Simulated scan of single mutants.
Amino acid sequence: MKNLFRTIAVFVMAFMAFSFTTLNEGKKEIKIENSKVVWKGYKVTGSHEGTIAIKSGFLNFNADQLIGGEFTIDMTTISSTDLEGEYKGKLDGHLKSADFFGVENFPTAKLVLTEVKSSGKNSYEVSGNITIKNITEPVSFDLSVYGNKANAALKIDRSKFDVRYGSSSFFDGLKDKAIYDEFDIVADLEF
């Protein structure tokens, strides 16, 4: 009987040790309801900002080290937060139209982390591929991880994804109607 209890105790301790050592390893799904992605676009006369929803995503860890990840963004949710009423409706509709992201034909965008290098405690230099409107381009950015949260800030050049509206890279004479090619994305993630 003592041997049976001893065997059970060893099994329970081994199981608990295994459970705790693998707690921070592997694939960690993003809790989309607790995560937020904010965008900000700039024009000669000001800026606009808003949100966009994560459809799905995960981060991969080896022990406590980030080693990769992947995110799918629901482009149909792109929305401005700095306007209200009619003007908000017009801008949101325009961003979803073929002039910008063409969400009817391209309802999702994707980011795949291809290389992750530690740059300090909880900080990483990340390289990846981002796909918008079925065009894939490389992107690099910094990402921080604290406990079960991560945040990152990216600059994206929309002209590389055939988003031409108001871009002085494609059209001359826009003057104060020009919209800058680079826009910002700030992601606050929970997993």
Rank of each mutant, 00 (worst) to 15 (best):
D142V: 11
K88A: 14
E182R: 00
I135C: 08
T76E: 01
T7Q: 09
E104M: 09
I67S: 10
I156Q: 06
G128W: 01
F71Y: 00
T108G: 03
S56F: 09
T136S: 14
A178F: 00
S169D: 13
L174Q: 12
D92H: 06
K31D: 14
D181W: 01
E84G: 09
T77W: 02
F61G: 03
V186S: 15
S47V: 03
E115C: 03
E125P: 00
A17C: 10
T114V: 04
K117N: 06
Q65D: 13
N60M: 14
P138R: 04
E182C: 02
I54V: 13
D181R: 01
N24R: 12
Y180K: 10
K2L: 12
D172F: 08
A63N: 14
E25G: 14
A98F: 03
E125T: 14
T76I: 04
I73N: 04
V44M: 01
F191K: 08
I67R: 00
S159H: 04
E137C: 07
D188T: 15
V163G: 01
T45S: 14
K155V: 11
F20V: 12
G57Q: 07
T7V: 14
I185L: 15
G68R: 01
I130H: 03
Q65W: 02
E29A: 14
I67Y: 00
Y42C: 05
A53T: 13
L91G: 03
K31N: 15
T72K: 07
S97L: 05
G41W: 06
Q65A: 11
E25M: 13
K117M: 11
F71V: 12
K43L: 01
F106V: 01
E70P: 05
G68M: 00
S169F: 05
F171I: 08
A14S: 12
D99I: 10
E70R: 09
G120L: 08
L66D: 08
L95Y: 04
E33Y: 13
I156T: 05
K36S: 15
